[in-house]
Design a binder for these strands. Sequence first.
DNA 1: TTTCAGCTTTCAAAGCAAGTTACATAGGGG
DNA 2: CCCCTATGTAACTTGCTTTGAAAGCTGAAA
Lengths: 229, 229
Amino acid sequence: MTAKIFSVEDEESLVSLLEYNIKSSGYDFYHASTAYQGMIDIQKVKPDLILLDWMLPDQPGTEICKFIRSHESLSETPIIMLTAKGEEGDLVSGLNIGCDDYLSKPFSPKELIARINALLRRSKNKNKESILEFENIKMNTDTHRVYCCNKEAKLGPREYSILEFLMKKPGRVFTRQQILDSVWGTNVYVSDRTIDVHIRRLRQALSTTEECKVIRTIRSSGYSLDIEA
Amino acid sequence: MTAKIFSVEDEESLVSLLEYNIKSSGYDFYHASTAYQGMIDIQKVKPDLILLDWMLPDQPGTEICKFIRSHESLSETPIIMLTAKGEEGDLVSGLNIGCDDYLSKPFSPKELIARINALLRRSKNKNKESILEFENIKMNTDTHRVYCCNKEAKLGPREYSILEFLMKKPGRVFTRQQILDSVWGTNVYVSDRTIDVHIRRLRQALSTTEECKVIRTIRSSGYSLDIEA
DNA sequence: TTTCAGCTTTCAAAGCAAGTTACATAGGGG
DNA sequence: CCCCTATGTAACTTGCTTTGAAAGCTGAAA
């Protein structure tokens, strides 16, 4: 059964972009232009995933969010919020309200699809918790988003993998070789020193506003996710 | 001690390829052509790593896998499964059965060696106790942190290694040469006196607040981790 | 008590691991 | 086809660690 994606969005041009990309990815596409119409149609369609615009002509997207979460049959439906640039500040409350992920406009269609896939995958086997946490670092392995001190940190793929690896065994020291084996995989020949560079990039990315020293260097041994003594 | 690699494989040509590459990498090579013979010889040899062909003339490799995992003395031995092309589909079950890695034929010898190295590295660090304790000294080899009288002690890498070495056999006396061989490695030429210096630094680092005499000097012999008589 | 070998402490230079920066390249997306 | 990001390497810097020499100390034997 193909998954049904429901979008509530008033911008015409964006709707057609969404429709094109979502249908290309093999999903069914449904749509409403206002919050009011959306709430009606969502109950009929019972979609597998909902895309909500943050700003709608009649009511804010968050209202639909609350509506969905409070309806027995819909409450488990994953929701992705779409925000215009500059509205990110409210996102913290958005996540609290109950949406599962968000994207800031303009976003790449590829990224949207990736997040839809991830959320659908999760809701299919919604058994396991996908949040890793250590100190003030939070990591959502479904959405691949990382937060440090409640601000999102933008990591490259490699930095993300290294952090994920470290987060799975916080405090434990790993040699460069162990990190290479696990993140790069065996039979890949990369210099040990490459790790240093990525660790630097990771530290830099995690230093959002305040200093956030969570990666400890153990000289001649390796690195660990830990607080400096 | 060189690690022993045991291969169960019926293809003649592949066996000689394996033998050549594994021996070139400095490992001992053992071999059986059938599952039955393999199970017998593996018990005698007690190898450090096992290569299993998925398809064998008498029984599938998975049977050997089960056999190994259910035998007390062998159950921790890492296993790499070798599969012919097209058998990958069954690999999921293979990994569930308990092999640690797999390779699809044809594979590059380089890759095989890389995976062997990686697994041996992993199994070497596996079964060592991560908390060492003596008197009021506590040492966590996972996090590389050392506590003396419940306060963290900051040690340099060398001091750390020396302490770890001593903590493994508390009370026992080691000559300077033994410490050198173990911590620095054999065939490294460093003056004996160097040990004295590091011992001093170690003592200093362990004297956090109160006097904490746990390293005993045995004049004209060496040092031991012990309480002064 | 003196002597001497062996042990401890101190010190400064050399060594080395990690941090940092810059750059070439590759790969993907528009 | 061009631009941009991600990645890995190399070169340089920094600061701690290691090291051996040498001076100071200790304890046992004479």
